[in-house]
Design a protein around this nucleic acid. Structure first.
Length: 725
DNA sequence: CCCGAGGACCTTTTT
DNA sequence: GGTCCTCGGG
C-alpha cells in the first residue's frame, strides 16, 4: 500500500524520546497529549496501547481506541500487532462511526432498531430528505434541501431530536417538521445516517443503564486520536463511556484543527482538562519530519493565532534549504514554474510520489492536471468521487440492498427504473400512492400492484428482483454481485454507452472488492467456531461499503505526483511540497473571513500545509487567476507576510509577458495614469487594493479596484487619490 | 422515455 | 469554466 508507506513516521524503529516516554508510561490517570505535527503521535498512541497490555494494566479487550478515518484505524491496528503478538479480533479499535455501528448492531433491540439496518451515506441522506419534502409538498425554491440537511445534521450533532427542538419562527418550525418526518421515514425504512449512528449510540448508553455500566466497566482505558477534531456529540459519547473510573488518553493538536465546518470543536481540549482534572498536558514538540527553516516558518505563522494551548516545534535536522516563494503573473505561469521545478527535481533523483502539490480548493487542480498530462508526468489526484460513491457502484449495491431490506425505499427508487425499463413518473406515482395509502414500503406496494395486474412493467420489475433473490440464495457476495451486474442489465446498459467501459470495469472491480472482503473476513474468523451466517456477512459488507467510502481506489503504489487539497494532506508527509494559490481570497478563502474564527482556521490550514514538507517547501501565487470563468486579481496571501524574511528566497516573474497580456487595456490610460490591471495601489481611505478594470473614456475614466478590506469598488480617476505600491 | 438546451450553483470533507 | 439539475420538445 503506497499510502501507508508515506505515513510511516521517520522515527519508527528509534527509541521513544523523554516526552514520548512520559506519555506512554503514565499511570492510571487521564491525559492530554499535545502532539505537534511530525512529533510521533501515532507511535505514542500505539506504544501506549502496547504498554498497557505488556504491563498487564489492561487486556486487549479492555481498551477502546478511536480515530476518525478508517485509514488511521487500520494503521493503528497494524502498528499494534507489530508490537504485540495478539489477535486484533475482539479489540475495540476503530472510527467513531464504526464503533457506534458495532454497539448498535449488538444491541439493536435496546436501540429500537431493526436487526438489519442500512447506513445512508451523505448522498443517500440528501435524497431521503428530498423525498420527505416532496411528500410534504415543500418546494426547493422555498426551502432548499441542502439547508434542511444542514439543520438535521446540526441538531443531531447537538443531541437535539425533533421533539425536543424549540422553533423560533415559521422557517425553523417548517424545518423541524421535515426533521420529524425524516426521522419517521428512516425508522420505517430501517435506515440510519452517519450522525444517527453516533446519536443513537449515545442515547443507547444514556437510556439503558445496564448496557452503559457494562461498557463503562469493560473499558478502563480509552485512547483518542486527533482529539481536536472531536465534535460535541463525540465528546459527550466519550464522557459517558469514561464516567466510571476510566481514563481517557487524548492525543491531539489544536493548531491542526481544520474541520470546524463539520462540527469539530477544538474547545473540547480545554473542556477535557477541566472535566477530567488534567493539570499537566504533555507537549510533544520535537519534530522528526522537517528541516528547521520549514518548522520556523510554521511556528511563525501559527504564532498569529490568539487562542492556542501553545507549543513550538523544533528539530535536530538542521536548517535545510530556504523556502522558495514564486510570484507568478497568472495561474498558468504559476503552473509552468511548478512544472519546471518538478522536472528538475526528478532529474536529480526525486521520486514523483515524494512531491506533493497542495491547493485550497479542488477547482485549482484542473490547470495543474492539464500541464501534467501534456508533459507526461504521472500524477494522482486525491479526493473527489470515491469508489463506493460512484453511480454504477451505488446502483449495483442498491439491488443487493433492496433484497437485504425490502423496506429500503432509497434503494428501491434508485433501481426501479435503472437501467431504464419503461417505468416512468406515472407508474412510480401509482406505486407511491398505494404505499402512502396502505402505509407500506414501495416494494410491498409494487408487489401488491403486481398481484392484481400481472402484465405490467411493474410486474416485470417485481419478477426481476424475485428472480435475483432466488438465484443468489446461498451464494457468496461476490458471486451475487456478479450475477446482479449482468442480470439487472447494468452491464449491457453501460456497454451501449460510449464512455461506459470504465463503469463496467468498476462493476467488475466491485466483484473483486467483495471477494477480497470475504477473504479477509474468513482469515479473521478462522478461530471463530460459530460460523457467521451468509446474511450477516452480507449485511456487514453493505455496512463496509457505506462506512469505508474510499481508499479502495487502485494503483496507489505508482510513482506519481501527489495532488490534493490542503485538508486531505493532513497526516501525510513528503520530501517536497508546493503550496499553490497563496492569495487573499483563496488562502485565506474569502468565505472564511465572514465566519466566526474563520481566519484562524485558515491559518491553521496554512500551518498544516507547511508542516507536510520534509526537505523542500515551495510557496506559489499568481497575480491573476481564472476562477469560475472570470479573471480574478488577488493580493498575496497575508500568511506570506507572517513568514520571517530570512527564511524565504523570493523569485519574481519577468515583467514583460505581463505587459503584453494587459497592453490593450492599459493603453487607455497610459498617457495620464500609470495604473495597469493587476497593479497594487493604495487609497487613503480604503487601503491597499489591486486594479482589476477600467471603464469610460479619457475624460471620465473610472477604475475598478479590489480592495483588501473593502472589496471591489469603482472609483473616478479624477478624484481618487491613488498611490502605487 | 430520452435527450439537449438553459439556468443556477460553485470551500474545505470523513463517516 | 464545468457540473448538475430541470424542463420541454421529439
Amino acid at each position: 500500500m503506497g499510502m501507508n508507506d508515506l505515513t510511516i513516521n521517520k522515527q519508527q524503529g528509534q527509541e521513544l524520546n523523554l516526552k514520548q516516554q512520559e506519555a506512554v508510561t503514565l499511570s492510571d490517570q487521564s491525559a492530554l497529549i499535545l502532539a505537534g505535527a511530525g512529533s510521533g503521535k501515532t507511535k505514542v498512541l500505539t506504544s501506549r496501547f502496547a504498554w498497557l497490555i505488556q504491563n498487564q494494566i489492561a487486556s486487549p479487550g479492555g481498551i477502546l481506541a478511536v480515530t476518525f478515518t478508517n485509514k488511521a484505524a487500520k494503521e493503528m491496528l497494524v502498528r499494534i500487532s507489530a508490537q504485540l503478538p495478539i489477535n486484533p479480533r475482539g479489540m475495540w479499535v476503530g472510527t467513531f462511526h464504526g464503533l457506534c455501528n458495532r454497539f448498535l448492531k449488538k444491541h439493536y433491540q435496546d436501540a429500537s432498531l431493526p436487526q438489519i439496518f442500512q447506513i445512508l451515506d451523505s448522498a443517500d441522506q440528501k435524497s431521503a430528505i428530498k423525498r420527505v419534502m416532496k411528500k410534504m409538498n415543500i418546494d426547493e425554491d422555498f426551502l432548499p434541501s441542502k439547508e434542511v440537511l444542514y439543520f438535521i445534521n446540526g441538531n443531531k450533532e447537538e443531541g437535539v431530536r425533533s421533539n425536543a427542538y424549540k422553533a423560533f419562527d415559521d422557517i425553523s418550525e417548517k424545518k423541524n417538521a421535515i426533521y420529524k418526518a425524516y426521522e419517521d421515514q428512516c425508522l420505517k425504512e430501517g435506515v440510519v445516517d452517519f450522525a444517527e449512528l453516533l446519536l443513537r449510540c449515545l442515547e443507547l448508553f444514556q437510556n439503558k443503564p445496564m448496557i452503559r455500566e457494562h461498557y463503562q466497566s469493560i473499558f478502563k482505558h480509552i485512547l483518542v486520536d486527533e482529539f481536536q477534531d472531536t465534535s460535541k456529540l463525540q465528546y459527550e459519547w466519550l464522557k459517558l463511556l469514561t464516567a466510571k473510573n476510566s481514563f481517557i488518553f487524548a492525543v491531539g493538536d489544536d493548531d491542526q484543527s481544520i474541520y470546524g465546518f463539520r462540527g469539530a470543536r477544538p474547545g473540547n481540549m480545554k473542556d477535557l482538562q477541566k472535566d477530567f482534572k488534567i493539570n499537566n498536558i504533555i507537549k510533544l514538540e520535537q519534530n522528526y519530519r522537517s528541516k528547521n527553516n520549514i518548522l520556523n516558518a510554521a511556528n511563525a505563522i501559527i504564532e498569529n493565532n490568539a487562542d492556542r494551548l501553545g507549543k513550538n516545534l523544533w528539530s535536530e535536522a538542521g536548517d535545510g534549504d530556504l523556502i522558495r516563494q514564486y510570484n507568478a503573473l497568472d495561474d498558468r505561469f504559476e503552473t509552468s514554474y511548478i512544472l519546471d521545478e518538478i522536472k528538475g527535481l526528478h532529474r536529480s533523483g526525486s521520486r514523483y510520489d515524494q512531491i506533493a502539490i497542495l491547493y485550497r480548493n479542488n477547482a485549482q487542480s484542473r490547470v495543474i492536471e492539464m500541464a501534467m498530462v501534456s508533459n507526461n508526468i504521472p500524477y494522482r489526484v486525491y479526493g473527489g468521487l470515491r469508489f463506493f460513491e460512484r453511480a454504477e457502484i451505488k446502483s449495483s449495491l442498491a439491488y443487493l440492498r433492496l433484497i437485504t431490506n425490502k423496506k429500503d425505499d432509497t434503494a428501491f427508487l434508485r433501481i426501479i427504473n435503472f437501467p431504464p425499463r419503461g417505468i416512468g413518473a406515472k407508474a412510480l406515482e401509482l406505486i407511491q400512492d398505494v404505499a402512502n395509502a396502505e402505509k407500506i414500503s414501495l416494494w410491498q406496494s409494487a408487489e401488491r400492484i403486481e398481484s392484481e395486474n400481472k402484465n405490467t412493467k411493474i410486474s416485470f420489475f417485481v419478477h426481476l428482483i424475485r428472480h435475483i433473490e432466488d438465484q443468489i440464495e446461498g451464494n457468496n457476495i461476490d458471486e451475487s454481485i456478479d450475477f446482479i451486474n449482468s442480470y439487472s442489465t447494468l452491464k449491457d446498459h453501460y456497454g451501449k454507452d460510449k464512455d461506459g467501459s470504465s463503469r463496467i470495469e468498476n462493476l467488475d472491480e466491485l466483484v473483486s472488492a467483495a471477494k477480497a472482503y470475504i477473504n479477509e473476513f474468513r482469515e479473521e474468523n478462522t478461530e471463530n467456531e460459530s460460523g457467521d451466517s451468509k446474511a450477516s456477512i452480507l449485511s456487514d459488507f453493505l455496512d463496509f461499503t457505506s462506512l469505508e467510502s474510499g481508499e479502495l481506489q487502485a494503483s496507489a503504489g505508482d510513482d506519481a505526483l501527489q495532488l490534493m487539497t490542503i485538508h486531505s494532506s493532513k497526516g501525510l508527509e513528503f520530501d517536497t511540497v508546493f503550496i499553490t494559490g497563496l492569495e487573499e481570497g483563496l488562502c485565506p478563502h474569502e468565505r472564511s473571513l465572514s465566519e466566526n474564527n474563520g481566519l484562524e482556521e485558515e491559518r491553521r490550514l496554512m500551518y498544516v500545509a507547511v508542516t507536510r514538507a520534509r526537505q523542500k517547501l515551495y510557496l506559489t501565487l499568481a497575480q491573476s487567476r481564472l476562477t469560475y470563468g472570470q479573471t480574478m486579481y488577488n493580493l498575496p496571501s497575508r500568511f506570506l507576510d507572517e513568514i520571517p524574511n530570512e527564511l524565504v528566497k523570493r523569485i519574481n516573474a519577468p515583467k514583460k509577458s505581463f505587459a503584453i497580456s494587459t497592453a490593450k487595456i492599459a493603453t487607455h490610460s497610459e498617457t495620464k495614469h500609470a495604473w495597469k490591471i493587476g497593479a497594487a495601489v493604495e487609497h487613503a481611505k480604503f487601503g491597499v487594493g489591486i486594479v482589476t478594470g477600467y471603464e469610460g473614456n479619457e475624460n471620465d475614466l473610472r477604475v475598478q479596484i479590489n480592495f483588501h478590506s473593502y472589496g471591489v469598488k469603482w472609483l473616478a480617476m479624477e478624484y481618487a487619490k491613488l498611490a502605487e505600491i
